[in-house]
């Protein structure tokens, strides 16, 4: 689609094009068509059930730009991006690095750190509802036991705390992803490089930072790129745990979209939020991913 056969094509080029054909076709059908129809819908006012919709131009976009709830959701999404880039990614790297050194019980640890990632969102929400029960939940109980009861919070009920509480649950849930990708990446580091460094007397940590980590760049891009994207389209756990509450304090753009669309039957406005989400992500996240991807190519070219 984006490739114009203007210059001379080699056999390699044709093979490449052939490889891209099926993915591009699927993409065009399942992404471009729905996105275009969404953009069209965002210019209308529609309750989702009426046979006709009313064209309102950019009114949905303009009114959202002044809506405090919308701006709050944008702010929360930005905080989530920062959080996801740092905490689950860093934790996953740390755990993968420790386990890659070959520690006793490695197999068991590998299972433990991955397990939470396999749990469905509904169950994650239910489990953390107990963890965060403000009086009898596990977190408050443990804090009381170790004499830190004063630190206990109304975890999911205090508008100033709820986002951090949700972040804790999400870190637990998604660290397994970063761990897995980093671990696979570490195992892809050629044995020769590590052996060479060891023979020169490097400690395991030195081996990691000087040899393995630079070669982990592609894994790092995958983890950071996906963390940023997952943070932007975050929905499941927030919706299942708090539905964006209390009083919108844990709203993110995807929960706002969903609530507007089906909670308040404002389909046009809801879709405008979704388009904003795509636009914000395209402006903030895309250049960053492209930039990092280019660095891979540059480092190869050397």
């Amino acid at each position: 689609m984006a490739i114009q056969p203007t210059r001379r094509f080699s056999r390699t080029d044709w093979t490449h094009l052939g490889f891209l054909a099926l993915p591009t076709l699927l993409f065009a059908v399942f992404y471009i068509y729905p996105v275009i129809s969404s953009i069209r819908l965002s210019l209308h006012s529609w309750d989702g059930f009426a046979p006709t919709m009313r064209y309102v131009g950019f009114q949905n976009y303009l009114s959202l730009a002044q809506d405090t709830r919308f701006l709050g959701a944008v702010r929360n999404n930005v905080i989530w991006v920062a959080f996801m880039l740092v905490v689950p990614s860093g934790l996953g790297l740390l755990l993968a690095a420790i386990l890659d050194r070959g520690i006793r019980g490695e197999r068991a640890f590998r299972i433990i750190f991955f397990l939470p990632f396999t749990i469905p969102a509904v169950a994650v929400a239910a489990i953390w509802r107990w963890m965060y029960e403000p009086d009898n939940g596990l977190l408050t109980t443990v804090l009381d036991l170790v004499g830190l009861g004063g630190l206990a919070q109304n975890w999911l009920g205090d508008p100033g705390v709820v986002n951090y509480a949700l972040m804790g649950a999400v870190a637990w849930w998604t660290t397994g992803f970063a761990f897995l990708v980093f671990f696979a990446g570490l195992r892809n580091v050629p044995v020769e490089c590590i052996e060479a460094a060891r023979i020169e007397g490097a400690t395991p940590w030195q081996v990691f930072w000087k040899v393995s980590f630079p070669l982990l760049w592609p894994s790092t891009i995958i983890v950071l790129g996906m963390s940023a994207i997952d943070a932007m389209r975050l929905f499941d756990v927030v919706w299942a745990t708090t539905r964006g509450g209390p009083a919108y304090s844990s709203d993110v753009l995807a929960t706002l979209t969903y609530d507007l669309a089906f909670g308040r039957l404002e389909m046009g406005r809801a879709t405008a939020v979704a388009v904003y989400l795509m636009a914000i992500a395209a402006v903030i996240i895309m250049p960053y991913i492209i930039y990092m991807s280019r660095r891979v190519q540059d480092s190869e070219a050397e």
């Binding site: 389209r233 669309a261 809801a270 879709t271 979704a274 795509m278 992500a281 895309m286 991913i289």
Partner: peptide, 11 residues
């Protein structure tokens, strides 16, 4: 292809 990841599936 990457922009595709930003499409909120709910919509």
């Amino acid at each position: 292809l990457l922009t595709g990841m930003l499409v909120p599936f709910q919509i």
